[in-house]
Design a protein around this nucleic acid. Structure first.
Lengths: 119, 119
DNA sequence: CAAACATATGAACAAATGCTCATATGTAAA
DNA sequence: TTTACATATGAGCATTTGTTCATATGTTTG
């Protein structure tokens, strides 16, 4: 067999097999990107805190800002990201907009995360 | 009752109740930070791809680099982050270092993420 | 309609992030 | 010990990200 560029670890069979398995089981490029994008949303403590508030109740923007002691603008920007990624829903009631959790995956994902860091 | 600074939405009782609930159920500052830190790790498609390879087998660094068509250095940097957050373990065998999944929370978290984006 | 309130949004800026490049460390073979 | 291979790591750089500030949009009330 001709030498292959980039071979390493002195193994040859394992590479082929590994590459085959990876090709078979690795999700599509776009799914990988979407997955990373989703977790990026959970990767900010402000958004995590917003979600913890929404675990308890449906809350309007200014209440969120007050509960988390942050600017209305900062909260609003983050809510937009949460909504774009379908983690929250919004409902207008008069001048206020109330936000709530979109589905239970959010709870599950965060619960698993907590389990992990508690070891 | 004296007017409170920062009141909003023309409600008063709800605020107090909300703030109480939030104080009771919101995790500690450090846990929130750690949680966000953990999800940040999942929030990069390179690291996600590494994890998908490790779902299938214990793999050494250069094989990972080859399978994902990336630099050894880039992979090594990301593996360090994965290891710091206890998502992977490593084991030295001669010149090579083999990486493997640390525990099943990783699988669960990613599985939940996939479910979410598939709606 | 105008004024007040609640929310959304664009620009700007500082901080964090991921890759590359060069090089250091660690291990095995000659 | 020297050489070669596998991995780790620090510095530098371009990109992304979260907040602030100013302002726009949307809604209710006077």
């Amino acid at each position: 067999m001709a030498e292959k560029e980039g071979m390493c670890c002195d193994s040859e069979e394992i590479h082929e097999e590994l590459l085959k398995i990876v090709n078979d089981t690795m999700p599509e490029e776009t799914e990988l990107y979407d997955l990373a994008e989703l977790f990026k949303v959970f990767g900010d403590s402000t958004r995590i805190r917003i979600l913890f508030v929404l675990f308890e109740a449906e809350v309007c923007v200014c209440d969120l800002a007050q509960a988390l002691n942050m600017t209305q603008s900062a909260i609003s920007h983050q809510l937009k990201i949460l909504k774009q990624n379908k983690l929250v829903n919004s409902r207008r009631e008069g001048k206020s907009v109330f936000y709530s959790l979109a589905d239970d995956h959010v709870r599950t994902i965060i619960a698993q995360g907590r389990e992990h860091i508690e070891e």
